[in-house]
């Protein structure tokens, strides 16, 4: 392992640890760990002249457990299975309405602002988890790299402001909150809302999975109609 990789790993772990401490001490959207640690790392990398390419080997090592960590969401899901089964119908309708509204409004707004067709196709997939977003974006004529960026921004936004916005909109039911975050802000939102409660985390993880299935089935025929 070279020095830059080692430095990148130490930096990332330290930034994450610090952001978590700050999040506990000063609770605010700006201290959302995924946002704050990303900003700190980008500033340090830019300041020390390390490019994202130099950082990539460290990224590969550190994201090695992302797959197993997503699989691990099955455990809170299992613990909350009774609630989930009982609320299958509200969950289905909420997820369907929310996903369609996100896709349609994103595509219409890209057209309103005269952005390119490829931007619209990349924006249409922004609510779902990255691997699905990239595949579906490719299917409907989007740019996979741009789609990945939009996914990241949607996730960050959901993690930072989602819980607060839901409270403002008087969505207080923990089940509905988890569903809303998982549907619109995938894993990044889930990572945040799981801190609010195990039920929210479980529902969010399930919604993330369901939204990715729904999107990959519906978008290829819906997108050309918009």
């Amino acid at each position: 392992m070279n020095t830059i990789t080692l430095f990148s790993i130490v930096l990332t772990v330290a930034a994450y640890g610090l952001a978590r401490l700050l999040a506990v001490r000063f609770s605010s959207p700006l201290t959302t760990p995924v946002f704050l640690s990303t900003v700190m790392i980008i500033l340090v990398l830019a300041g020390s002249g390390i490019t994202y390419q130099d950082y990539t080997p460290a990224k590969e090592i550190m994201t090695y457990l992302l797959g197993p960590a997503t699989v691990a969401l099955a455990v809170p899901l299992y613990h909350n299975r009774d609630v989930l089964l009982k609320k299958a119908a509200p969950a289905f309708w909420g997820l369907t309405a929310g996903t369609l509204a996100t896709v349609v409004s994103a595509v219409w707004m890209t057209k309103m602002f005269h952005l390119t067709e490829a931007t619209a196709a990349s924006a249409a997939v922004k609510s779902v988890t990255t691997p699905v977003a990239i595949e579906v974006a490719r299917m409907i004529g989007g740019d996979p790299a741009l789609a990945a960026i939009f996914v990241m921004i949607a996730g960050m936004f959901g993690a930072m402001f989602g819980p607060w916005l839901l409270t403002v909109m008087k969505v207080t039911d923990p089940f509905a909150r988890g569903l809303s975050i998982g549907t619109t802000a995938h894993g990044i939102g889930t990572a945040q809302i799981v801190q609010e409660g195990s039920l929210q985390g479980a529902v969010s993880g399930a919604a993330m999975g369901a939204a990715s299935i729904f999107t990959s089935l519906v978008l290829p025929w819906l997108f050309p109609l918009l």
């Binding site: 909420g94 921004i153 909109m169 039911d173 509905a176 909150r177």
Partner: peptide
């Protein structure tokens, strides 16, 4: 891009959460 990305996320969040909460309280 910001208006589009954040706007559509807010719309999606409101609808998902609102519909689910309304239906589950009725249920």
């Amino acid at each position: 891009l910001a208006v589009m990305l954040l706007g559509s996320s807010i719309i999606g969040m409101a609808l998902t959460g609102g519909v689910a909460q309304l239906l589950s309280s009725r249920h």
